[in-house]
């Protein structure tokens, strides 16, 4: 038994059994052919860049100037400010929505449920247009920062409310019964016993949701807020380097989000909890 645990197999690996000689030959050939195909695909892409002149130095040289990176870094700070503020608001609002929904008070529970489902069921872009185009019609003047941060926060709050609820459901029923039988009120049971454990369960999921928030902030240009994407657009017009700039920016976003996902998986493994999506 213990000997078998050495090679703890996942289904991904178990699906194909250890190959025999014939299969091994096929795998060698298949590996070579598929490597060739992947390389060929890459070559076609690179060639297309080359023949369209997109590999010219003028499209890439400005990445060697540190003013470029300073400007992008300023944009990144803007992204960070929106993402963290929106994340913090969503955290509080999501928790409130979950508490309302699980409160057991019928009308409150129903309202929280509708609000949660609404924010989960509409695109964040639509919410942004609401704050950008609709709110000003009622005479409310908002800075660009809030026209971006609030809709991103609301969209995330709907999701987080569900994440929190899953966390609460993951707390063993016996804990609640034990607390109630000790004479704790339902509210005290929730705040003293259930929530602290639920929060522990959902921390990796909360980190993972930050990816969604970061992605949502990229439409900052709609409200002309200077985030990473918006600053990249400014650089594009000044250097006339659309393709190279967008690719680099996309890569930066991918790396940021990849790092956040990795962090979430790391925390999940360290604390031994599952990520709820």
């Amino acid at each position: 038994m213990s000997a078998r645990a050495v090679s703890a197999p996942s289904v991904r690996d178990a699906l194909f059994e250890a190959p025999g000689p014939r299969m091994r030959r096929k795998i060698v050939v298949g590996t070579a052919v598929s490597a060739l195909l992947v390389a060929l695909g890459l070559a076609v892409v690179v060639r297309q860049f080359y023949v369209t002149g997109q590999l010219d130095a003028r499209y890439w040289s400005f990445f060697l100037e540190w003013t470029t990176w300073r400007f992008l870094a300023q944009g990144f700070v803007g992204t960070l400010e929106v993402a963290l503020t929106a994340g913090a608001i969503a955290l509080v609002l999501g928790l409130v929505l979950m508490l309302g929904r699980t409160s057991g008070v019928r009308p409150l529970s129903a309202v929280c449920r509708v609000v949660t489902d609404f924010f989960r069921g509409v695109p964040s872009l639509l919410l942004i247009y609401f704050f950008f185009l609709v709110v000003p019609q009622y005479g409310v003047k908002m800075p660009a920062f809030w026209m971006l941060t609030l809709p991103v926060a609301l969209a995330a709050a709907g999701v987080l409310a569900e994440v929190f609820r899953a966390g609460v459901n993951a707390v063993p029923k016996g804990q609640v019964e034990a607390a109630l039988s000790l004479g704790l009120s339902p509210a005290r049971t929730m705040f003293k016993i259930v929530l602290p454990q639920a929060v522990r369960y959902v921390i990796p999921s909360l980190i993972a949701q930050l990816v969604v928030v970061v992605k949502d902030t990229t439409v900052a240009y709609v409200v002309s807020y200077p985030d990473l994407m918006q600053n990249a657009r400014v650089l594009i017009t000044s250097y006339d380097a659309l393709v190279s700039m967008y690719l680099v920016i996309a890569l930066i976003y991918i790396l940021i989000n990849y790092a956040i996902n990795k962090a979430s998986v790391y925390v999940a493994q360290r604390t031994g909890v599952k990520i709820i999506r």
């Binding site: 860049f49 997109q54 949502d216 994407m229 659309l242 967008y246 996309a250 976003y253 991918i254 989000n257």
Partner: peptide, 22 residues
């Protein structure tokens, strides 16, 4: 990894505005 981490707007802009340059 690429497509679950790239923001939708960034991908759309690349496809709609960068690809024509290629």
């Amino acid at each position: 990894q690429v497509f679950r981490n790239i923001p939708g707007v960034a991908l759309l802009i690349i496809i709609a505005y960068a690809l024509p340059s290629l």
